[in-house]
């Protein structure tokens, strides 16, 4: 369209240009959610979180209603990653979301690991390194049958090279309501995670074992008592973990806290919750 008003002074030197969309730089922050009371996990097991650190980033916003393959050309992104204390509701400044103006309707992000087209190995970013090579670290305790069970969970969240190599692991779908108008005056964006949802689907009762020795078992927990078993299922030794200030971990024995192992329901529940559960809020 002819923009004669713009032409009056600059026609000979610059001409009339439809400036269209403009570069945008939106301050980006991330925050957690306050957990004032206990969280109820499966079977109403109360859980208290002491630590819920999450590697977040890179983060990309897209124009289409579905990210992923349809976001080869994005509107804006933040190409770094940082560790977020998701128990702290105070926004933590990450950087700037840099890009072009437009209406963003979807997003995608990683958790400290980036899948590359140029390599079958994933790229670990410093934020993941900061978490000991994990995308998240969750620590807390659950009260199972009146027994306080400290636990810890950590894992890598990364796109599998055999699935969609080169794509971020979290991509919003058409059901996710996301709308962000990107322009020069766009207000700072805060991504808020709620770690409560991560543990709500964990069955902590499986962490409280009440068994006795049987054949081919080396260690079992009889509630908070560790039983060391012989080859034929006889009890070789009994240790009261609680007396030592420890907790009896199934198949492990007395430990400071129970580590949610890969393949365990607890760790899978957290992974699922982070990747496909309640999406973060954008404020």
């Amino acid at each position: 369209m002819v923009r004669w008003r713009h032409c009056l002074l600059v026609v000979l030197l610059a001409g009339c240009i439809d400036t269209g969309v403009e570069p945008v730089s939106v301050p980006l922050s991330a925050a957690g959610t306050s957990t004032s009371g206990p969280i109820l996990a499966r079977h109403d097991v109360p859980v208290t979180l002491d630590r819920a650190d999450l590697a977040f980033g890179p983060f990309t916003v897209c124009a289409g209603f579905q990210a992923g393959d349809n976001c080869d050309s994005a509107l804006a992104d933040w190409t770094e990653a940082a560790v977020i204390d998701t128990l702290d509701p105070v926004p933590q400044r990450l950087g700037n979301l840099e890009g072009i103006g437009g209406s963003a309707r979807s997003y995608m992000y990683d958790h400290g690991y980036v899948s590359l087209l140029t390599d079958t190995r994933r790229l670990e970013l410093p934020a993941a390194d900061e978490l000991g090579g994990s995308s998240f670290v969750v620590e807390g305790s659950a009260t199972v049958d009146g027994v306080n069970v400290p636990f810890r969970a950590s894992s890598v969240l990364a796109q599998s090279a055999s699935v969609e190599r080169g794509s971020p692991i979290v991509r919003s779908g058409t059901d996710d309501e996301f709308a962000l108008e990107l322009h020069a005056d766009t207000a700072p964006l805060t991504v808020r995670f709620d770690p409560r949802s991560w543990v709500e689907d964990i069955d902590f009762r499986v962490l409280s074992q009440n068994e006795t020795c049987a054949m081919d078992q080396e260690v079992v927990c009889q509630l908070q008592t560790e039983l060391e078993c012989g080859p034929s299922g006889e009890i070789l030794r009994e240790t009261d973990c609680s007396a030592l200030g420890l907790v009896c971990a199934p198949d492990v024995g007395c430990v400071d806290r129970i580590e949610l192992e890969p393949g365990s329901q607890g760790l899978a529940a957290i992974r699922n919750a982070i990747l496909a559960g309640k999406p973060p809020a954008f404020e």
């Binding site: 030197l13 001409g15 240009i17 439809d18 897209c62 124009a63 289409g64 349809n70 976001c71 050309s73």
Partner: peptide, 23 residues
């Protein structure tokens, strides 16, 4: 127009043609 495959097309109706110097 924007499509599922290209929700963020590089060109908009009414914009000045890319790469063309007005003067």
């Amino acid at each position: 127009p924007p499509s599922v495959e290209e929700p963020n097309p590089p060109f908009e109706e009414g914009q000045n043609l890319p790469y063309v110097p007005p003067v």
